[in-house]
């Protein structure tokens, strides 16, 4: 047993970052936070264009996957969905983030050997388009909530078919 043990080296390199930026209090710089919040506010007018661009990318990669359902096109679809999942809430579209999260789960959790159900992919892409087109930013919107819940359920059924009642 001892023969299989291997050495472990543990060491503390100098904290060059601390030496460079200083700051003895170790707290949050509230003034910098306020400046950053202000800077983001000035960017908010661009968010609509940014999310529109991301939605267009998703539509494009979905078309590419439909035409050629290979690994690179599937990866591209995953990246587009994943990007939107991460960004849409920042761009004030939390429901789009939720639908994109469901799509990311479908693509990421379904074994690579199994083809993506295009109808379900399209359900997500269409829902994202509808939420975007109608400018739904309220997480309490009933229609969007129903749509999200339905898509979540369909993904769950696809990933865990045994649980289907």
């Amino acid at each position: 047993m001892a023969g299989r043990q291997q050495p472990i080296e543990l060491f503390m390199p100098p904290n060059m970052l601390k030496a460079k930026v200083g700051g003895g209090l170790g707290g949050i710089d509230m003034a910098a936070m306020k400046r950053a919040e202000g800077a983001l506010d000035t960017r908010k007018s661009e968010f609509a264009d940014w999310i529109a661009s991301d939605v267009k990318t998703l539509i494009d990669v979905r078309a590419r996957y439909a035409k050629t359902p290979d690994a690179p096109s599937r990866d591209a679809l995953m990246r587009a969905a994943h990007d939107i999942k991460g960004q849409a809430a920042t761009f004030n579209f939390p429901l789009i983030a939720r639908v994109a999260g469901s799509l990311s789960r479908l693509i990421g959790d379904l074994p690579a050997s199994q083809a993506l159900p295009l109808g379900l992919v399209d359900g997500h892409v269409n829902a994202i388009q509808v939420i975007h087109r109608q400018g739904i930013q309220d997480t309490n919107d009933k229609m969007a909530q129903t749509l999200c819940a339905e898509l979540d359920a369909r993904v769950e059924e696809t990933l865990n078919p045994k649980k289907k009642s």
Binding site: K20, V21, G22, G23, G24, L25, G26, G27, I28, D29, M30, A31, A32
Partner: peptide, 9 residues
Amino acid sequence: MSGYRFDRL
């Protein structure tokens, strides 16, 4: 105020 010199980063 934390005193960090982020400008040096």
